[in-house]
Amino acid sequence: MKGFKRNGERLGPFLLENAVSMIMIAFMLFMVVRKPSFIRWENIANIINEFAVYGITACAMTTAIICAEFDLSASSVFAWSTVLCCMLCNRFGFAPAVVLTLLCGALFGALNGVLVALVRMPAFVATLGTMTAIKGLAYVVTDAQPINTTNETLKALGQFEVLGIGSAPMVFLAVLLVFAYFLKKTRFGRAIYATGGNYEVARLSGINVKFSKFIIFVLLGSCAALSGIMYTSRILAGWAPYGSDLSLYCVAATVIGGTSLAGGSGGVHRTVIGVLLMAIMFNALTMLGVDGSMQKFIRGLVLITVIMLDAFANKRQRS
């Protein structure tokens, strides 16, 4: 009897802590009953291909949030990378284009890193500034026109698929594994957790906090550029307005996954659930024939609900 009661007591917090996964499972069951075509492999592959591009950046954004920072400029770096990748592909070919685009992303990330880690600006305003400037740069270079590319290698990369799964999910998986390994298993990763958890304590313990703060922005810039390249490979075009919702999407996916914005906890594996939930929701609502503005409405409500549930779960845990 006593054991039973204890189990009963644990059920509530368990549901609360895993609310997002529960919502996802319930929602998928509902979809399977309502639209059996939802679980056909073509559709599942579709969902996976859909979320992988943004998922790459979401991994890096999670790392930044673990370090108690975040980055609004990722969306502009993404747009800039689609433009740059197309231009360089047309002029120099595939390999130099990819390398230079990634380097350029890392450079923009390093700029953010210098502003935040060394000048010690609040990340929100520093990246608001770089976001505006980089977006402007992408518009200026292209004259606000979309740029096409006919590069064969890039096209092959975009069309490559195994059982319906394209190249983007494979890159995403690789990025995810690398991030998960580095965050959990290396000294470097633990330093990022420590810096995010308590900056002053981490500094006094001899961790190079400035380097931690700097390097996460470099990683984020490179990942945003990588997302941009994968996106370009699919649509073979670059344009300044692309991906303007990327930054906030990644922050939302991270939070829905359960990484706290306070920093110092969470992990990239959690973000996969966040990204997956958003992709499934998007796919399912489209299949149900819900129109665009209603979808937005539901997405906003889900976001608010999740952050509220998360806050209550944390409160219970603490008390």
């Binding site: 906030l248 922050v251 939302a252 939070v255 706290s260 914005l261 306070a262 665009g292 503005s293 209603m294 979808q295 937005k296 409405f297 997405r299 906003g300 409500l301 976001l303 608010i304 952050i307 509220m308 806050a311 209550f312 409160k315």
Partner: peptide, 27 residues
Amino acid sequence: SLINGRSGEAFIVTYGMQVVVASIALF
């Protein structure tokens, strides 16, 4: 204030509200 939110929580809540209200304006 119900969740005693700091700037991080406030960021997400008001961002969610932004999306919700934007869709209400579109309806």
